[in-house]
Computed example of a mutant assay.
Amino acid sequence: MTETESATDTDFASGFVALVGRPNVGKSTLLNAVLGQKVSIATRKPQTTRHRILGIHQRDDAQIVYVDTPGLHEGGRTAMNRYMNEAAGSALGDVDVVVFMIEAGRWTDADKRVLQRLQTVRAPVVAVINKADRLRDKNRLLPEIEALAGRYDFAAVVPVSALKSDKLDALESALIEALPRGPALFPRDQITDRDERFMATELIREQLTLMLGDELPYASTVEIEAFEQEGQLRRIAAIIWVERVGQRRIVIGEGGEQAKRIGAAARLQMEHLLGGRVYLKLWVKVREGWSDDARLLKSLGYSADR
């Protein structure tokens, strides 16, 4: 290695940053805002994120590899709940920096439990107070920062608004300060570790959650049966799996209208993200107990081995 290359490695920061917190604090929204494009689906429903997803932010001075994780939570006892907690918890031992996210103006027992999980983490932890723009009285922010700083020896405490992309530069400055120096870990044009097939699955599931989040909170998943590309046209066939016949009727809707709305919205998102025309065909099928069958979950792509 030449002297110039050594100096470059000394100046360049690269490493993995885990985004952790209780469900629905805005981890996926933060990741998408930093990258400037969607790689992780986001809704207002807790536990929307089910997989560990890498989002790679390519900067002139750093390559920050964000690891978006499912929200750490208690209460669920199904194989799906165990998978999500394992996917989130396993990320903590494999990263260079941890981002601990909470909501401005709200400290909960769930936040406390997540922070307790961080007591054994060796990596530096940066605290992020998200949704800071929602505090009507801005004078409350400084005491909240001080209170949070008193709960743990954080490398930094940064208030942001992920939804409005506010103060994200300050967050990344704190992360770069904490990251190791060295060469880029991924090609400079790579944005995520997930392929188009996975993204298609997630975009359908996102529309299911947005349109039927109250009627069908966590009883559905999506499986891609076929994914073919002809030039700029992608032909995608997918199955929406639910656990009961009544849930199937909800997803299909009167005269099939609900399924058509879900498919149309997902198709538009796919065309925007993938940059080409999409022909999407959906089926809705029943498979009882899919969310509590570990072997079946693995076949559907729910594997913490990643």
Rank of each mutant, 00 (worst) to 15 (best):
Q116E: 14
Q116Y: 09
V286N: 12
R52F: 08
I56T: 07
R197A: 11
V126I: 14
E144A: 10
Q207Y: 03
G26E: 06
A226K: 11
L297H: 06
D137Y: 06
G89I: 00
S303E: 11
G93N: 06
V17Y: 07
V39N: 04
L212A: 07
R194Q: 15
G246A: 11
Q258S: 11
S90G: 09
E225K: 15
K112F: 08
P46V: 00
V17F: 04
S90W: 00
M80E: 07
L185P: 01
E257P: 01
R106C: 12
A294L: 04
M80L: 15
T49C: 11
Q247M: 09
E288A: 15
R277P: 09
D61S: 14
V99A: 11
L168E: 02
V157D: 06
A237Y: 00
I236H: 09
P23M: 08
E74Y: 02
Q190I: 08
E271W: 07
R50W: 06
I102C: 14
R261C: 09
Y279K: 05
L208K: 02
I252A: 09
V97T: 10
V67G: 12
A304H: 13
K27W: 03
G213C: 05
N24H: 09
Y152E: 05
D166L: 12
Y279H: 13
T10D: 15
S299F: 00
P143D: 04
V242G: 12
Y302D: 08
G15F: 05
L163R: 13
I56K: 07
A123F: 10
